[in-house]
Design a protein around this nucleic acid. Structure first.
Lengths: 214, 214
DNA sequence: TAGATTGTTAATCGATTAACAATC
DNA sequence: TAGATTGTTAATCGATTAACAATC
């Protein structure tokens, strides 16, 4: 669908546009101009127009953008019109939290199974999602069409599991382990590094106490 | 401590440097050149040297960088030599997962209390951390020196709670609610938007199926 | 038609990379 | 000293913002 090359900076902003448009939609706002949206989002109107025009003209001169239409179109760009099957690898607290987060389903992400090595967790289920022993993972992936694996396991185990998943045909990895996975080009990795996020907060807090000259 | 203005791009990379240096330290690596590190991290050596020099000369010509020293210095820049008291607001799965994540303590982040409105959770404790009723939060913050609040509560409640926390003297908010908090300048917000992270993964997956020309 | 606002080009700004003199 | 590698300046590249003609 997307044809021309889109910079990473633009892609990173798309989900935020999507969220704001969803909020507007809930408030029954029908149309919005780039200027109004820019004030809400605290970005420049120019950036919004520039970003959107990477994907085609969604607006109308003199009118602005139709909220519902733009929301739908950005959803399509983000691939939210498709369905994804997810497995969660690691049934610890974070894995369980993700399994419980039913909101993902609204966006087309379906958690199909959770895997762990801990026999005390195997056999349990969360929101009707089974926790299976990790040895059953290969077969499960081959029988079900699993697109994405969320890795919520210790750093030490992540690289091997990721390599296995890649071999078994997983397309994307949502990596919560605090390590970088070095896989082949054709497997997509999206990292969530909570510890690093907390460090950024910490940096900003100390900076506040010792501000820069500028 | 930090004097000159540091760009956001640099700050975002610091925790990753810190992580790689920590890994090297565990492997008892004593020194590393920007070139070696750049190969591991898949960035340019130039960028590493440029980034580090924002904070002063940590290396030595002809030698490279001492791993332990650089690790410590970046830790200081990130404020990891300080201690932070944290409260978690929202004792749902994600809040509980954060409370259970004992690794944060190693970095100086101490979870002191969890708050919720659900009477069925109040009175329980996680790893010895009490879950209290949210009405007790104001007093708790005034009695204990709380620096950071992690918000793991529904989007609808986040803005009001954040405003209260700001009034009660919280310095930083680690926001997991899928909304932007508009607070005064002097309160620091670091967002973790899991849904947006998943959308980026989704984008990259659909892009792979319909690649750009370039 | 007049007013509003997009789509898009041009100008500016900032971040990254390359190059190399300084120096360990 | 010779070799290695930093610290730092200069060149390049990319992203953001400003401006405005096109057009609804």
């Amino acid at each position: 669908m997307q044809r021309k090359y889109i910079s990473k900076a633009v892609i990173n902003r798309l989900p935020r546009y999507y969220r704001y448009l969803g909020d507007l939609l809930e408030k029954d706002v029908v149309r919005i101009s780039s200027k109004e949206l820019s004030e809400k989002m605290k970005v420049t109107a120019s950036q919004i127009r520039q970003d959107l025009n990477n994907f085609g003209g969604f607006g109308q001169q003199g009118y602005g953008y139709n909220v519902e239409y733009l929301h739908t179109e950005i959803g399509k760009i983000l691939g939210l019109d498709k369905k994804y099957n997810i497995i969660i690898v690691g049934a610890g607290n974070l894995g369980q939290a993700l399994a419980n987060y039913s909101d993902f389903e609204r966006r087309g992400f379906y958690v199909k199974c959770i895997f762990d090595i801990n026999p005390r967790l195997v056999g349990l289920s969360i929101r009707g999602i089974d926790i299976k022993f990790i040895d059953e993972m290969e077969e499960f992936i081959k029988l079900n069409q699993v697109d994405i694996a969320a890795l919520t396991l210790p750093k030490a185990k992540a690289p091997q599991v990721a390599a296995d998943l890649a071999n078994w045909g997983i397309k994307g990895i949502w990596n919560f382990a605090p390590t970088d996975l070095h896989l082949t080009e054709d497997i997509i990795v999206e990292n969530v590094h909570l510890a690093e996020s907390l460090m950024k907060l910490s940096y900003k807090l100390s900076e506040k106490q010792n501000p820069a000259d500028k």
